[in-house]
């Protein structure tokens, strides 16, 4: 089976091609705000190095958030367009699950800085079973114990060491969703919506 994996939810872009359970290409580096310029050349390189073409793909695994709103959309638009056009399923993956994926402790708490004291947080055990659902929360309000993991400078957090194959093994049997319905999981309304809701309350 031939899979493409894309994660552009944080400043670290991850692009991988996995063929029959083996990583044929992996890009896993910080690209910062240049996501939209960087991503296509990495994807193009991924297919070249794996010796396959997009039409060979069986499934796409795409991170749908939480994280940078724009960043999520860049990678997800690629995944969505590709899956729709090639008529293949796409499996949405949590960015927090990816962050937690390579850490062997049984209580991993993956974090993404969401500014003003807030974080996106998700709890995963060593088998990537979800311990607590991804949420938008004040860092100080997290009451679960565990190993903090984050790319961002969050006190006592260790850096992620992601394991793409582990993620794919866990989700491989999922049927995936209709690409038209693949949308970001922001975990947060826009400011305009929040303000409008306040007015209506």
């Amino acid at each position: 089976m031939k899979y493409l994996f894309i994660d552009s939810a944080t400043a670290t872009l991850v692009v991988a091609v996995v063929v029959n359970g083996e990583i044929k290409y992996l890009f896993n580096e910080k690209v910062g705000t240049d996501m939209s310029s960087a991503i296509m050349s990495k994807i193009s390189m991924a297919f070249d190095q794996a010796g396959i073409v997009p039409q060979d793909l069986d499934k796409i695994f795409a991170v749908n958030g939480p994280g940078s709103f724009t960043g999520i959309r860049v990678g997800l638009t690629v995944a969505k367009t590709m899956a729709w056009s090639l008529k293949i399923p796409v499996v949405p993956i949590s960015s927090l699950e990816v962050i937690a994926s390579g850490t062997p402790s049984s209580n991993n708490i993956a974090l993404i800085d969401a500014r003003r004291g807030f974080v996106y947080a998700g709890g995963y055990d060593k088998d990537l079973t979800n311990i607590f659902r991804d949420k938008y929360i004040l860092l100080k309000d997290i009451d679960q114990q565990g190993t903090y993991i984050s790319y961002d400078n969050i006190v006592s957090a260790i850096k992620p060491n992601i394991d793409i194959l582990k993620i794919i093994r866990k989700h491989e049997r999922e049927p995936g969703i209709n690409p038209h319905r693949l949308n970001p999981n922001y975990l947060k309304l826009t400011e305009a919506e929040e303000n409008l809701n306040k007015q209506n309350d």
């Binding site: 939209s36 991503i39 296509m40 994807i43 193009s44 997009p54 039409q55 709103f69 724009t70 959309r73 860049v74 638009t77 690629v78 969505k80 367009t81 590709m82 056009s85 090639l86």
Partner: peptide, 17 residues
């Protein structure tokens, strides 16, 4: 910019595939 990026990424993806 955020709006432009959606059309742009879709176009680049189709051009690539």
């Amino acid at each position: 910019i955020g709006s432009l990026l959606i059309g742009l990424m879709a176009a680049k993806t189709l051009a690539f595939i």
